[in-house]
Amino acid sequence: MTRRRAVHEPGYVLHTYPYKETSLIVELFTRQHGRVGLLAKGARRPRSALRGVLLAFHPLHLSWSGSAELGTLVAADWAGGQPALSGIGVMCGFYLNELLLRLLPREDPHERLFAVYAASLAQLAAASDRAAVLRCFEHRLLDELGYAPLLVRDAASGAPVDPGRRYEYDPERGPLAANGSAGAVDGQTLLDIARDEYSRETTREEARQLLRALIACRLGSQVLHTRAVLAELQDL
């Protein structure tokens, strides 16, 4: 059994679950340890100092100890410097958190993804182009998980993707040139995704569909609740 300990590690709360009367199980995304589950004892007591701190989307500094599957949170400090998410931004944040919870294994460090996540939250808080923030994050996430989509070459011929052509996209292989106007995406869309450029309207729509399909392949049978809730809200 390995002993794990961390002091003042930068991280974010992804989600919390009530545990027993007054405690919480906290799912965290930390810089050097990746996704970590910790027990926060007494965090639900009315006067707990952790109450205003263990909130998602805020940069924190975390210290923990423990040898078992679930370590114990020792301290969580507000690192600050970022305005809270509001409105639709909160829902976008839930979506990012759900992706991380479902796709990142525990104790698997992803320092680059951590930086992308932190930057994405800051952009969501600043209410910049939220759709573009989500697409960039989805792309980086696939990349970090080892499933970087092939975007610049035709998977069959190896020829560079032609921005003027239409392509089918095979999730396991990559883009395959389609005949005429058939196919799922413009070559331009693939090239735009490759350089995080989402100003073109067609790119936005096609990239959303394509990245959703690629993420669905990684999720397998798991359903993304955030999407289902958003769809339900649309209906009302």
């Binding site: 829902m91 839930f94 609740h225 955030t226 809730v229 958003l230 339900e232 009302l236």
Partner: peptide, 19 residues
């Protein structure tokens, strides 16, 4: 409350009823 990560959506909290 709406809690997408716990799968709690608008109908679970009676938003249609509230509207």
């Amino acid at each position: 409350r709406l809690s997408p990560l716990d799968g709690i959506g608008p109908r679970d909290i009676g938003l249609d009823h509230l509207l």
